[in-house]
């Protein structure tokens, strides 16, 4: 009984093997990367967002080739608070500066702070998460309690205290300082994700294999475990970019972030409330830029999540 079914299975398998030689294997093999790319390209909102983001980056940073920042910050009392027109597509602000140019220059700083703060947050998050996940015991306990504690204090409260009071020493509106503070206050979700991943990964056979070959703990972490946690980390990082941009905007809106005349999307909104009645466009455009950027970054994260997920059928 068993013998006959085995031979019949063999007979069925033969044509399949031929097919594999002639057809499937003649194609280049599907690597993880090509499959990832296929799934990502099929996620239409993410692709559109990628294009919009690239366009924004090129526009914001490319404008420096044609206009200097001083020109963008040129005060023109004649053209104070003039509504959007061909000459000033986004209108002018309360001292007659062109809102369009300032929005582009502001984008340079807002985008840079968003990206760099997310990088800082990812690096700290991975470090804390792997150390904590790999060493169970008191190290894990201490690191996770610190994470809990930082998550319990609303971020904007610490941000305001640090930028306000340390700002007096370092200089209010120091871009590097603000980036650093936002980055060091947003790694907690990432570290939790990484820790959960490491806890499960370190029990896998490939880690046992590496260890039995004499691999040291540091090398196992760096070469075998951390690369396998990267997919959810990249998704979390895109969310961090959006959050960092909004944090910077909130701080600058309150007047604690980047100081005038340097423009960021948040600082341009700083005095907008006073002019809502007569010049609402001052409030409109920088806000739309934040909205579009954060929206695109979130869609990008969504697309990456689906592309990383081998079970996704999209």
């Amino acid at each position: 009984m068993t013998g006959s079914s085995d031979t019949s299975r063999l007979r069925e398998a033969a044509p399949l093997a031929e097919m594999a030689v002639s057809g499937a294997l003649a194609r280049p093999p599907e690597t993880m990367w090509t499959m990832f790319r296929q799934r990502f390209v099929r996620h239409r909102p993410a692709m559109v967002s990628l294009v919009v983001l690239l366009f924004l980056v090129v526009a914001c940073f490319g404008v420096s080739l044609f206009v200097s920042e001083d020109e963008a910050n040129l005060i023109d009392v004649q053209a104070m608070r003039s509504p959007p027109s061909w000459e000033h597509p986004f209108g002018t602000d309360d001292v007659g500066r062109d809102m369009f140019l300032r929005t582009l220059f502001g984008g340079q700083i807002s985008l840079r702070i968003g990206l760099l703060a997310a990088c800082i947050s990812v690096v700290i998050g991975i470090a804390v998460g792997t150390i904590s996940g790999y060493n169970t015991g008191w190290i894990d306990n201490v690191l996770m309690r610190i994470t809990d504690a930082l998550l319990s204090i609303p971020t904007l409260f610490i941000l305001i205290v640090l930028t306000r009071v340390l700002g007096d020493h370092i200089g209010v509106g120091n871009i590097a300082f603000i980036t650093l503070v936002i980055g060091t206050l947003s790694w907690m979700p990432t570290s939790r994700i990484v820790r959960a991943q490491v806890l499960s990964l370190k029990e896998r056979d490939f880690v046992l294999g590496a260890r039995s070959l004499g691999c040291q703990a540091g090398r196992i972490l760096v070469r075998h475990i951390v690369p396998n946690t990267l997919a959810p980390v990249v998704v979390a990082a895109t969310l961090d970019v959006g959050r960092a941009i909004i944090f910077e905007a909130s701080l600058s809106f309150l007047g604690l972030g980047i100081q005038p005349p340097t423009a960021t999307w948040g600082s341009m909104l700083n005095r907008a409330q006073a002019y809502l009645l007569n010049a609402p466009w001052i409030a409109l455009f920088p806000g739309i830029m934040i909205l579009v950027t954060v929206l695109c970054v979130n869609f990008l994260g969504d697309g990456l999540r689906d592309a990383f997920d081998p079970h996704s059928l999209r």
Binding site: A249, F253, L276, P280, A283, G287, L291
Partner: peptide, 22 residues
């Protein structure tokens, strides 16, 4: 809801003031 998640709340506040008050 995607739009809502991406909206900076302080800016939304300004826009609401403009619409409903001004």
């Amino acid at each position: 809801s995607f739009l809502g998640i991406a909206t900076p709340s302080f800016w939304l506040g300004l826009m609401l003031i403009y619409l409903f008050a001004v």
